[in-house]
């Protein structure tokens, strides 16, 4: 099935895509058919900057287990760092 559902978020950071580093402004998360991964469905995450055009994009396609492991790893890494260390307001 195509779920089509897209969760969008604003992002502040940088990513490295096919044309080098760029500033990130948006992210999209959706569970759908992947473009490249050899699974029926994956959790697809796009890190983008629409102002710099469609090529300003870092794409990942993860299995559900991988996506959940990534979430846990991000939370673990943040919780073991001093609170607010990576905050935009630091």
């Amino acid at each position: 099935m195509c779920t089509y559902i897209t969760e969008k978020i604003e992002l502040d950071g940088a990513g490295k895509g096919g044309t080098g580093w760029f500033t990130l402004s948006e992210g999209a998360v959706y569970v759908d058919h992947p473009y490249h991964a050899c699974h029926e469905h994956t959790v697809n995450i796009d890190f983008t900057n629409p102002a710099e055009g469609p090529s300003a994009r870092v794409a990942v396609e993860l299995t559900e287990e991988s996506a959940l492991a990534l979430i846990a790893a991000i939370q673990k890494a943040l919780s073991s760092a001093p609170p607010g260390l990576a905050s935009a307001h630091h």
Partner: peptide
């Protein structure tokens, strides 16, 4: 690239 075009169109 077509995959980047598709992601932009979807967004």
């Amino acid at each position: 690239s077509p995959d980047d075009q598709a992601a932009a169109a979807r967004a």
